Computed example of a mutant assay.
Amino acid sequence: MRSSDAAQTAKKQPRWGMVIDLTKCVGCDTCTVSCKAENRTPPGVSYNVLLELEDGIFPNVKRVNIPRPCMQCDKAPCVQVCPVRASYKADNGIVVIDYDRCIGCRYCISACPYGARSYDDGASYEQEMLGYNDVQAPEYGKKRGPRRNGKIPEGVVRKCSFCFHRLERGEEPACVETCIGDARYFGDLNDPNSVVSKLAASSRAYRLKEDQGTEPRVIYLR
């Protein structure tokens, strides 16, 4: 491929990002539940969690709901510390975990300033949900299962991938599609006319822990 062709291909590659409007989030946990159902995550592993914080000084205090997926950082500490390069940035900017390379050392869990990674220790919902261990995980477009005898993804680190497998089908992440408050927006940050690009450039926009220099692709609106 000529350099000009390669440059043209790179230009067309989307730069996926997510904007979450905190004024619309009602704290219903639908994103958490839909994410677990979509990605078949086991006990102790949740890619989307809802943090509840108090803002203000008593008596003028209010509760703020902060949904927290993986931030898909452009300068991801988790990628930098992985000793086997199991974590890396895909062409579309999503931070990916190669389960076949991951050795479960959990350095990346310690390095992530957002607490967005979890270790799959093999726990199961089999006692609560008959046949749970036979259901396959669809992540990254490769079905894994059944969950028994230490088969991958057991024994590896897992996290949100912006529902990579759904993006490949032209669909939005499950948390975006099911948000009852329409608080989540997803799209191409490389497209200046996209909704996410316009919202990310607004005066209400901010990123969590910007002082860490991670350059996350999840942007919040105050």
Rank of each mutant, 00 (worst) to 15 (best):
V33H: 12
C31E: 02
N39W: 03
T41G: 08
S124A: 07
A10V: 05
V135Q: 11
V45H: 07
V49A: 09
C163A: 11
P14K: 00
Y107G: 00
P173C: 03
T178V: 02
A111F: 04
N65Y: 13
E126Y: 05
L53N: 10
N92M: 03
M129R: 12
D91N: 07
L199I: 10
D211F: 12
P216H: 10
R184V: 06
Y185M: 08
P83G: 09
V95E: 03
R184W: 06
C105W: 00
M71R: 10
Y140F: 15
I57N: 14
Y114D: 02
P59H: 12
V157K: 05
Q72M: 14
N190P: 07
V95K: 00
D55P: 03
K159L: 11
C28L: 08
C31A: 13
I152H: 07
C108K: 09
Y88P: 08
R148T: 04
L51F: 09
A183P: 01
Y119V: 00
G181P: 01
A205S: 14
R117G: 00
N39D: 14
G187C: 04
S194Q: 12
I57A: 11
V196T: 13
R169H: 07
V195H: 04
C179E: 05
V19N: 07
P59V: 02
I180S: 15
L22H: 12
S197Y: 13
T23G: 08
V84M: 05
L53Q: 10
Y185N: 10
D91Y: 01
R158N: 01
G145D: 07
Q136L: 15
M1H: 09
V79D: 09
A183S: 06
A116C: 11
K209N: 11
V26S: 15
V95M: 11
Q212L: 09
T178E: 13
Y220D: 06
Y88R: 12
N39A: 07
K143H: 11
D55H: 06
G181M: 06
